[in-house]
Design a protein around this nucleic acid. Structure first.
Lengths: 358, 358
DNA sequence: CAAAATGTCGGCAGTCTTGCCGACTGGCCA
DNA sequence: TGGCCAGTCGGCAAGACTGCCGACATTTTG
């Protein structure tokens, strides 16, 4: 299956021509794989529109009609089966096919991991319960105690994702991270939790890139460095923090500094709904939207495709970055795992809670 | 010019559909802009084949025929003019058009900078003269003296780009970097010099990503982290080094460690020529090719598009990374500028030369 | 329960993309 | 000078992509 005629087709002259285009058949295969990949993540039948939407999260842009066309082909090949008008599900054969061709994927970029996490989290906004995605840092409790004040200030100034956090004791695990003896796990809500919540409300928010955001008087000014999620295996904010390129000191002092933030985009029609939901997020301590663009309008000079709006979301790892800035080497892991919402507490409680870990 | 019908075209039902695809017209515009961008960099007429080739350096994949089609349209719009069979050049109007739509570009990714540097360098392999692209690190001469041995070892073990380097005195400048009083500028040849040299020989080598390469017994094993050049504003290797994620200590000790390297690809037919040129590069102290894949074959599990081969190139910044690993904070700038080839000397001279800077 | 609303699917047609070919030009060599 | 080669160009047709529509199924509403 999927043997393609393999450009033997060098024309008499201009022999190189066939080389540059990846080849038609190859493109088709790639698209099929992409679709199967989306289907793989879902348990219930998915419709073509939904698939298109999910695909667009990963910057794959083709129309709903085209997706439907491919689905038809996939049906014919037995890789998917239609479930009436509910949509399609992937078959065993489809999974196998995916397996065999998964080798031609790049080693896990962050986008992939983000998608996964979004599917797995369960937080329900009206119920205020379920799991959220968190970042975890392993730190020496004494060093942490030293930095209680600036950490709280990062929250207070709104440079953190929401107002919530939690602490883990030695021996506890989160995802694949085990808190070792003599350390404490410092968890903050990861900003992609927002994406997850929005997706459950039918708003497909796509993460474009993470970067260092220059703030002036507490307002977002511009990105000084960026790394696209689609092109990295390591979390951009993690990198900037470890490299000591941030400047939270200034940010919490007088509102001028460099903080971690990320750029996302969503369909223009969802804008108003995002504003409504954003308000409710603030109420439950998960507010994170720093800026929201206008349809078609560049945001901080960053252009958005037509029909979409841009948004700036503050980085989840921000509070812990002040430790690194104080030359304390810490181990941070973005997207480390899921945690129940009711295990989180407001940052104001942080100093008191920390006592029991010292 | 370039007003597009702007998706008012919501169909009666399924109103969202039009949103996901970026729109046909938009796609066309993007392609035209891309072509104009290529043309802008060139002074002499360029043919459609050449343009396709250059375009493919930036992962834009469409066929030579398609480029020709667009060129025709551009001609008609007066943005380019055909120069007989030599090719096309961009017109004033074309440049203006580019200017006005340049706003919808992302802030300078590294790819863009790489392209620029490649065009500007002038090194000529047969003549062994001209300029090459270098990375510069500003370091305390005493700290540097401490690390002479490991630095030389990185070169000796072949974990550096070639065998050459140079030193700059306080007050000298390279690109936009000025060596301050009390520091010395440590320059190594940047690995994209290879791309530039190859391009002059008609081989379009595209840089895909930089990453941390795990070496086992001195052999490349796999990438543990990667960042695509197309998606970052900051040099990946710079980042990994600053984050302290490398392990040169091990690499030069027993051949097991983590070093900076980058993944590139080129057309399959160029493979043999690359081998030949690679040999000559070794002779002039610019050897950097660690691994070269086979056509169609994944290299270190990294797939390549059909008709292309992958290559692993060692990172130019590698020698200086040992300093960072010894906890010496240094300032490094990849792609800092151009320097004359004859100002470089072999690393064996490094200890002696350094004396005069102490 | 009927009517309306929402959402899926496939057909059709127009546009975009690309492989292939023949025509042509300019350079090189016998 | 004539023939061969390498490279460019445009025409043509097949294939891919997508907008638009009508046919239906399911859900919601009054």
């Amino acid at each position: 299956m999927y043997t393609w005629p393999q450009s033997h087709l060098k024309s008499r002259r201009g022999g190189e021509i066939a080389v540059f285009g990846a080849g038609r058949m190859q493109k088709k295969i790639d698209k099929k794989i992409a679709i199967l990949n989306v289907l793989k993540e879902q348990t219930r039948p998915v419709s073509s529109a939904k698939i298109t939407e999910l695909l667009s999260l990963g910057s794959l842009m083709f129309s709903e009609r085209t997706v439907r066309l491919y689905l038809k082909e996939l049906d014919a090949e037995g890789l998917t089966i239609p479930h009436g008008r509910k949509g399609r599900v992937i078959t065993e054969a489809g999974l196998a096919e995916l397996q065999s061709s998964t080798i031609r994927q790049l080693p896990g970029t962050l986008s992939a991991k983000i998608d996964q996490m979004i599917y797995r989290m369960t937080f329900d906004l009206p119920m205020r319960s379920g799991t959220v995605v968190v970042n975890t840092s392993l730190v020496d409790p004494d060093q942490l105690a030293d930095c209680v004040e600036p950490v709280c200030k990062v929250f207070a100034k709104g440079f953190a994702m929401g107002k919530l956090m939690t602490l883990l004791r030695p021996g506890e695990t989160i995802g694949e991270v085990l808190v070792p003896e003599g350390r404490v796990g410092f968890c903050t809500v990861c900003s992609i939790t927002i994406n997850g919540i929005l997706l459950k409300h039918g708003i497909p928010m796509a993460s474009r890139f993470g970067g260092l955001l220059e703030v002036r008087d507490g307002k977002a000014l511009r990105f000084t460095e960026i790394i696209h999620y689609g092109g990295t295996s390591i979390d951009p904010l993690e990198v900037f923090i470890r490299s000591g390129m941030t400047n939270y000191h200034g940010a919490i002092q007088d509102g001028n500094g460099l903080i971690g933030a990320s750029f996302r985009e969503l369909p223009s029609e969802s804008r108003q709904r995002l504003i409504n939901i954003g308000q409710r997020l603030e109420e439950v301590g998960l507010g994170a939207i720093m800026e929201l663009g206008l349809p078609e309008q560049p945001l901080l000079d960053i252009p958005v495709p037509s029909g979409r709006v841009g948004a700036i979301i503050v980085g989840g790892l921000n509070p812990i970055a002040v430790l690194e800035e104080r030359e304390h080497r810490i181990f941070s892991r973005a997207l480390s795992g899921l945690i129940e919402y009711d295990r989180l507490f407001r940052f104001e409680e942080f100093p008191r809670r920390l006592q029991s870990y010292l």
